[in-house]
């Protein structure tokens, strides 16, 4: 067997390292002792039914919220507002400033994000076919989702976290988004963590899975090994959650 990139990265710090995360809201346990690592350069799928705690987990990883107990490290440094520069987050059910046009927003983004890559933004604008003139609040969901992804990917941040990038997005937009993600991943410099329900759209892309349900880790899988044992991502998901 040829030596494989995934296995040789032990020396580098993991892109994300969660240790014993706990979170309670109003006596309801949202996250219960969540621990996992995400190696650099991987594309990890965070899968689980609605209300499993995915969004809360991603908020904590990105430093927008803090857990009751436990710690998160991003590239070996504790997660928090200071790490926002090294990760690019697409928040769930969120929208960009609706009072701006796409063009205006991209101009602002160029100033806001120190790691903005103008050439990449233009390239992605073509690839994702996002038109510049329309007002963000007047865009369709699919269009806005593509613009949000464009914003995420036009940065040079080494870690990209997408929280439900496909909600309410049409088939063609979904395919476009997935293929843009692939294009980004090919350089090998970026790590993706994607929470999604659309397993079929993404299952060929994932190389690792983290399955969470009821706030607990229900499985961490290497997708290649799953396939060796004759299981697909979808069948594994059904096995765990059905």
């Amino acid at each position: 067997m040829t030596s494989y990139k995934l296995n040789t990265e032990a020396a580098e710090p993991a892109a994300v390292e969660c240790r014993g995360l706990n979170l309670k809201i109003k006596k309801k346990i949202i996250l219960d002792d969540i621990s996992f690592d995400i190696p650099q350069g991987s594309l990890t799928g965070l899968l689980g039914p609605n209300g499993a705690g995915k969004s809360s987990l991603l908020r904590i990883i990105s430093g927008l919220a803090s857990p009751d107990a436990g710690a998160v490290q991003i590239f070996g440094k504790p997660a928090g507002v200071k790490q926002l520069g090294s990760l690019s987050l697409l928040p769930d059910r969120s929208s960009l400033p609706g009072w701006l046009s796409v063009k205006e927003w991209l101009e602002f983004a160029c100033g806001i994000y120190p790691d903005w890559d103008q050439a990449k933004a233009q390239e992605l604008q073509q690839q994702l076919s996002v038109s510049g003139e329309s007002l963000i609040s007047a865009m369709s969901r699919g269009e806005e989702a593509r613009l949000q992804l464009l914003t995420c990917l036009s940065r040079k941040a080494p870690l990209i976290i997408l929280d439900e990038p496909f909600t309410g997005v049409d088939l063609i937009s979904r395919e476009r988004i997935a293929s843009a993600v692939v294009g980004e991943l090919a350089d090998g410099a970026r790590t993706f963590l994607i929470a999604t329900h659309d397993i079929r759209e993404m299952e060929l892309l994932f190389d690792r899975l983290i399955l969470i349900g009821d706030g607990r880790v229900r499985g961490i899988e290497d997708v290649e090994q799953l396939r060796r044992s004759g299981k697909s991502v979808e069948s594994r998901y059904r096995e765990v959650f059905a």
Binding site: A178, V182, G183, L204
Partner: peptide, 25 residues
């Protein structure tokens, strides 16, 4: 290229890279 193969088929680029590695071997 590995990238085009992966993007064209919607698979993880490591899958494409591995395909080429295997064929090269």
């Amino acid at each position: 290229s590995v990238r085009d193969l992966a993007a064209g088929r919607g698979v993880n680029p490591t899958t494409a890279a591995r395909t080429y590695q295997e064929l090269e071997r």
